[in-house]
Write a protein that binds this DNA or RNA. Structure first.
Lengths: 226, 226
DNA sequence: TATCTATGTAAAATCCATGTAAAACCTGCC
DNA sequence: GGCAGGTTTTACATGGATTTTACATAGATA
């Protein structure tokens, strides 16, 4: 789902049409009010944000988006009629993921959206993560091994997701704790080991992909059969 | 390190100057030949690529970069004078990470570089260490010799990393102990020798790169085959 | 050459990280 | 309150990693 915040109804309709033609779900907003409401309902995969808006300025919207935990990771593409370099720099510094200068073609817009989604998807997106026989859908919160659903608890899921997001990378127990639990734990704990253990048995044969690097931590072996 | 491939020497110098002023290391290339050579030497953190080049087209360079294992993950920003939308679409579809339309300001260029690096660095930044046939990836905790993975234990890995980080430099046993073990050991110990020994045999032929400096310690011979 | 010291290396001894089962502890829910 | 997961702690066995030991060997020194 893509949210478009754009006050000019002609342009907005054109954008929505092009997006839908390209296979995306899209919703348009004329001003910030309804946009914020919609955000409370559900989060989009990407936001197209005009800089010049009647009520609230696009840059300040971007700032708010970035400062809130829930929306900080949503990719944002800014659009503006003003060609001024200054705006771009500000927008990029605030963390916009890309920039479109009006007038822009719909082809370019779709291409940029595609590119941004491709870049961000491994981190943010609900794009399904896979490694060998394992596939994990963050949005649905499901894990399949060889197509069979595997019920996992929250922590198990979080750990597996982290490993799948960075295949091959070694994570120390401390890192796993920090990433999956949020807070960094000081003392020593065996809880990670236990979760890894249950994960491995639950995943069955595929559990072997989770390997332990002695003295360091755990990692997901990337299967090189392709 | 940022590589700039741009045939116009004025623009190239300007870019290099702006990059260095912004605190980046940067190297410029007028055409693709020397650029490919430099890539064999060492991989940059980002590549700025002009589309219009005398010999090899920027888009085809991008394609090659993406298809090679070693360079596939390096972020690329394309630059072009042609404002044609078509080029952009192609560039983005081939996996460019961003796009600059000439004439662009240096401020914007730096801002975009910053933005791209911010997006990609947490994932890419693996800083693989290499020396001759040996390559070591700290993040994955893997060592390859001529492309074949070599299983190493923690201490072996730590020692090898230290040596690779300072090629040619001699380390005393005490230094190795301190760096790889953390605490400085008082008495005398042969444990370093043993680890060096296993390292050498595990590395096979490449093990000869680890030489002993009699009465002092060990060092990694830097292969001068280039 | 004879001698002395530093290094290589195999094998034994020790240590300690990890796997795992089970108990204890939470937390939301009826 | 009590139940049903889920999560964390505890405890212990095990095997791999590390260290020590012992001896052979190569280099240095005179």
């Amino acid at each position: 789902m893509i949210y478009c915040v754009e006050d000019d109804s002609n342009i907005r309709d054109l954008m929505l049409y092009a997006l839908q033609a390209a296979g995306y779900e899209a919703a348009g907003f004329e001003e910030s009010g309804p946009f914020w409401e919609a955000l409370r309902e559900s989060l989009p995969d990407l936001i197209l944000l005009d800089i010049m808006l009647p009520e609230e300025d696009g840059l300040s919207i971007l700032k708010k988006l970035r400062s809130a935990q829930a929306t900080a990771e949503i990719p944002v593409i800014m659009a503006t009629a003003k060609g001024s370099e200054y705006d771009k720099v500000i927008g990029l510094d605030l963390g916009a993921d890309d920039y479109l200068v009006k007038p822009f073609g719909m082809l370019e817009m779709v291409a940029r959206i595609k590119a941004v989604l491709r870049r961000t998807s491994p981190v943010t997106q609900s794009a399904v993560l896979t490694a060998g026989p394992i596939s994990l859908d963050p949005a649905k919160h499901t894990v399949l091994v060889d197509g069979n659903p595997i019920p996992l608890t929250l922590k198990e899921f979080d750990i597996l997701r982290l490993l799948l997001e960075h295949p091959g990378q070694v994570f120390s127990r401390a890192q796993l704790l920090e990433k999956a639990w949020g807070i960094d734990y000081a003392g020593e704990t065996r809880t990670v080991d236990v979760h890894i253990g249950t994960l491995r048995t639950k995943l069955g044969d595929a559990g072997r992909l989770i390997t332990t690097v002695r003295g360091v931590g755990y990692k997901l072996e990337v299967p090189d059969d392709k």
